[in-house]
């Protein structure tokens, strides 16, 4: 009898907690699903990244009209011709630079701030630069509210951020056919720079630039979701 009496308040507490959590974050389930299906399911196994992507409320980084689609398997428009990358691409790019807790990371092209948020969960310090003032200020507001290890600057990413250089890793989400010499300069020896190549709605390739003692190497990476292109049968 006593057990049953104890069980009822326990169950009630659980029920209240679960429903409170759900009312707090109605997207939690979708986010979990996203990580399972789109990220882990496609070969991103970095534990820290998976946890970070489950924690960061992606829906807060998209325009309100796009919120119902925030956890869909596709990039979304955020205005000014810019996009928030497909969740998988964010996970895959982050895995490539393999962020460590002591890392200092530079991001070029803050956009909505989602990639910076994921990095902030994993690295010691994140610096991010956005060229479009409207996007930069909006991302700065949100990131400042959520993190104390992200600094946003509105400006031309070409010059990097010399006063905080060198960086362990650089993520260039807004590439345009030129890898600016100052960015290459500001990368630590042994550091990694990742750049997506392709239409924002069809990011197929990621380019990894590595700075080594004897120079630079680049590697064109095909996201795991695409099998290598083969001859048709």
């Amino acid at each position: 009898m006593l057990r049953r009496k104890m069980l009822i308040p326990f169950l009630l507490t659980m029920l209240i907690t679960v429903s409170f959590q759900q009312s707090q974050d109605p997207y939690a389930e979708k986010r979990k699903q996203m990580v399972e299906d789109q990220i882990r399911g496609r070969g991103v196994h970095h534990r820290g990244i998976l946890e970070a992507m489950e924690r960061v409320a992606r829906h807060r980084f998209v325009p309100s009209a796009q919120r119902p689609f925030a956890y869909h398997d596709r990039p979304l428009p955020i205005g000014f011709g810019q996009t928030i990358s497909q969740p998988y691409i964010v996970g895959y790019m982050t895995q490539i630079i393999d962020p460590r807790p002591h890392y200092k990371v530079l991001e070029i092209g803050t956009g909505s701030g989602y990639q910076a948020a994921i990095l902030a969960e994993l690295a010691a310090q994140v610096y991010t630069i956005e060229i479009i003032p409207e996007l930069g200020h909006s991302a700065e507001h949100l990131l400042n509210e959520l993190y104390n290890n992200v600094i946003v600057k509105v400006g031309d990413g070409y010059y990097g951020w010399e006063e905080h250089a060198p960086f362990d890793a650089i993520v260039v989400t807004a590439a345009s056919g030129t890898i600016p010499p100052p960015l290459v300069e500001q990368l630590k020896e042994g550091g990694k720079m990742v750049i997506p190549v392709g239409s924002p709605y069809m990011t197929q390739q990621l380019m990894l630039v590595e700075k080594k003692k004897q120079g630079y190497t680049t590697r064109s990476l095909i996201p795991v979701r695409f099998v290598p292109f083969r001859r048709s049968e």
Partner: peptide
Amino acid sequence: SPAQRYAPAVSLAYDKEI
């Protein structure tokens, strides 16, 4: 625009201002 630059896939060895 001062931020509109032309350097199509310029070498990583290039260290001048574009």
